[in-house]
Design a binder for these strands. Structure first.
Lengths: 188, 188
DNA sequence: CATCTCGCTCAACACCCGTTGACTCAACGA
DNA sequence: TCGTTGAGTCAACGGGTGTTGAGCGAGATG
């Protein structure tokens, strides 16, 4: 009723958007292998051939669905660092972008998603390590990154009930000392 | 030369073992979907049909490959708890059993592996929560579990260089305060 | 030695996937 | 108004997958 005879350019933009959204959702939900072109097309109410015509490849469709993760700003002091990380966690708890979920869902089984995840994590490690003093800054940064990765995986992808039912602020509050323990000098 | 005319029963046992080992390795390396029956068979130098004859299903082959994860003993005090967890981590760093790797590799994309992982993590959470005082014992236990999960994933599956190149004891030493922070009362 | 048993292979089936080329038909521009 | 363009569909191909049933041939059994 509302979408009556749209101009061609606009119409194309919209269906391409519908396809991309459907792809993001499906990739995020079941991963690369199980997300078939046919299923994406059906979800977008479109012929499978049109998906190919717009994105060329399943690989490139996946690339387009995963691309454009938000670029977070860097943190200065280790104190801000932890808060910034937990802020990221908060965002993740609410509604982590579907593209990121799609990448994480497939990072263990799809080669390209794996390298994409490694690169994203490496960037995070770089950013963190610059703010951590000491010899083993990179190792500490990597541990902080993997800690957040594990919590996110357990929460968003595996949907562990304990994390699912907890308030994000509570998780952040419990996690803060654990992360802070990795910023300072070794006290063990 | 050494394996000359073996008895039938022994011969069967050996080839079945070869198939299962090949399946564990392949599942652990590329995950459920990409590990084809044909590839398992070729790796075990056997006809694909024989794999079906021995294990019936790809699903059941996977189940057999994942089954029999070692049953760790419980810990008593929170102090022992952390050490026990880090001991687990040490084992993982050395040579985590291929069956566990196979389960972890597919836990985000294969439904049954997902529920298996959830159950294994739930058992760990139960064990941990019993040793932690306070109201939010289960949430703390879940966080400790997911922390270890993240580090293991980053190390064994994603193979992040910082973790790959670090000595297991060093990782354990850096991780100890972070885990201990979750056993005690809230100090944030 | 004759028969049976069973580990193992071969060839094929049915299915689903990604991908393609020809086609339809409504929006566009002169 | 009439070709032209391009969004969208249809039907099909080639390839890889899990799975199956018939069959072979060497070890067990009497």
């Amino acid at each position: 009723m509302s979408e009556r005879v749209l101009p061609r350019a606009e119409r194309r933009r919209r269906t391409e958007g519908r396809i991309l959204d459907a792809a993001k959702a499906l990739f995020a939900e079941v991963g690369y292998e199980r997300a078939t072109i046919r299923a994406v097309a059906k979800s977008a109410e479109v012929d499978p051939a049109l998906v190919m015509q717009y994105f060329g490849n399943k690989q490139e469709l996946f690339r387009a669905a995963v691309r454009a993760t938000p670029a977070p700003e860097a943190a200065a002091t280790p104190e801000e660092l932890v808060e910034h990380l937990l802020g990221t966690l908060d965002v993740k708890m609410g509604e982590l972008p579907q593209g990121s979920l799609a990448m994480m869902r497939s990072m263990l089984t799809h080669p390209e998603a794996g390298t994409a995840a490694r690169e994203a994590l490496a960037r995070q490690v770089d950013r963190l390590a610059a703010s951590i003093p000491g010899e083993d800054a990179r190792l500490r940064a990597a541990l902080m990154t993997t800690i957040l990765l594990g919590v996110t995986v357990g929460h968003q992808l595996l949907e562990l009930p304990e994390l699912r039912d907890a308030l994000p602020e509570r998780i952040a509050r419990l996690l803060r000392p654990s992360l802070r323990a990795l910023t300072g000098p070794d006290v063990s």
